[in-house]
Design a protein around this nucleic acid. Sequence first.
DNA 1: GCCCTGACGTGAA
DNA 2: ATTCACGCCAGGG
Length: 127
Amino acid sequence: MKSAQIPLRPEHQAIHDAIAAIPPGRVASYGEIAARAGLPGRARLVGRLLREAGEAAALPWHRVLRADGTLAFAPRSRAFLEQKRRLAAEGVSLRGNRVELPRFGWQRDLDAELWAPPASPARRRSG
DNA sequence: GCCCTGACGTGAA
DNA sequence: ATTCACGCCAGGG
């Protein structure tokens, strides 16, 4: 048969998986998710998918935010408050209107590995 | 098909 | 810190 009429979007699947893989208590940016899904530069697609997915998808959508740590919704919107509430429930707090990525960012795990060479004397101030 | 909008990102002013 | 311009591209009208 001539395969499906429905496009079967592997990219969507990849994005879906990437979002589902964000650990609780951690957050990731749209762009980060896109990149992880093998689609660098496609941050908007991530947002679009989340919009379409809705609650039914059971995805941790609240763990996805902008690259600067701000939530993608208007500060007084229903969605904003809900996202903030869900994050708080996982220990992720906001400072002002943004989440501190160096502290809660998912990529932080990877960074830590690359930035913490235990064998190096580290010419950082000893005190 | 053209135009506009958008859960974005980045660099420049 | 803000604002603007672009780049990206899927949908909707």
